[in-house]
Computed example of a mutant assay.
Amino acid sequence: MKSCSAMESTSCIKFSLMSLIWIIVLINEMHVYKGCLETERTALLEIKSFFISVSDIGYDDKILPSWVGEDDGMPSDCCDDWEGVMCNVTTRRVMQLSLNYTERLNYYDGTSASLLNMSLFHPFEELQSLDLSGNGFAGIYENRAYDSFGSLKQLKMLNLAFNDFNDSILPYLNTLTSLTTLILNWNSIEGSRTKQGLAKLKNLEALDLSSNYYIHGSLEGLANLTNLQVLDLSYNQNLTTLGFADLPNLKTLDLRYCGITTIQGI
């Protein structure tokens, strides 16, 4: 290949730039099949590995089978082909994760005391909806390398129903200040062992605490949820006193099958 002469130097530079541009385009096209960002694709595979690790032996191939890495099979689009994943059509970032009933346990022999690693969800900067219901988690932890107060800033809906969480998760939930919907039914929440409760969730519009059974006394912090429109406290037979200072936007209050004897502030 002959080198460029002085007169051809400008043309050579243009040709080199165009070649570089085409290389970049080809590289991007090679990664189109991945759909979501590479960092988020990797994070999704880490979530799959986590669920396999907390499930009983023998369920590996039944847990999120459509979530495959490059070494697992044919390349697939993690935004369009992976179950439970929904992405922003423009940014291709993950917006919604539906991981309900993902943990697999033997009905007769398996007992779930798993802790949920919330650090796994920090890479998803545009995550707005997260469904983790029906997994039998008993608590939450995070890796210290992550800043829990700087993560999940756009999370609007969190579904933790049908787990075994107790009041120990309330301080963490209280940091998710962007939440508008929080579903905690069928857990073991008592609601009276923490001073703040969910008081910092000022944007919360819907809260489901039904069927916790252990809730008793006066629920801490609910009086501060001034944007709350829907509150479900049904099937909490030990809840005897309900105290609110001011819930001006409350439209629906479900107290079916509760032991309520006193309602204050409404």
Score class of each variant (00 low, 15 high):
112 S>P: 01
118 M>F: 12
154 Q>E: 09
118 M>T: 11
71 D>K: 09
109 D>P: 00
103 E>Q: 14
107 Y>F: 09
88 N>M: 06
166 N>L: 01
120 L>E: 04
138 A>D: 13
154 Q>F: 03
145 A>Y: 03
143 N>H: 14
82 W>L: 02
102 T>I: 05
98 S>W: 07
142 E>K: 13
155 L>K: 10
75 P>Y: 01
150 G>Y: 04
144 R>H: 10
129 S>K: 04
72 D>C: 02
98 S>E: 13
76 S>N: 09
129 S>P: 00
77 D>T: 04
134 G>D: 13
139 G>R: 09
169 I>P: 05
108 Y>R: 11
120 L>P: 07
103 E>P: 01
66 S>C: 04
72 D>P: 01
153 K>H: 12
131 D>C: 07
146 Y>Q: 08
83 E>M: 11
85 V>K: 07
95 M>G: 03
127 L>H: 01
59 Y>K: 07
147 D>R: 13
168 S>G: 02
125 E>Y: 04
102 T>Q: 04
63 I>C: 08
117 N>G: 05
131 D>K: 07
106 N>W: 05
104 R>W: 04
144 R>V: 13
115 L>R: 05
135 N>P: 11
78 C>M: 04
95 M>N: 08
79 C>I: 05
153 K>C: 07
145 A>L: 10
142 E>G: 08
134 G>H: 14
108 Y>M: 08
77 D>Q: 06
103 E>K: 13
59 Y>V: 02
169 I>W: 06
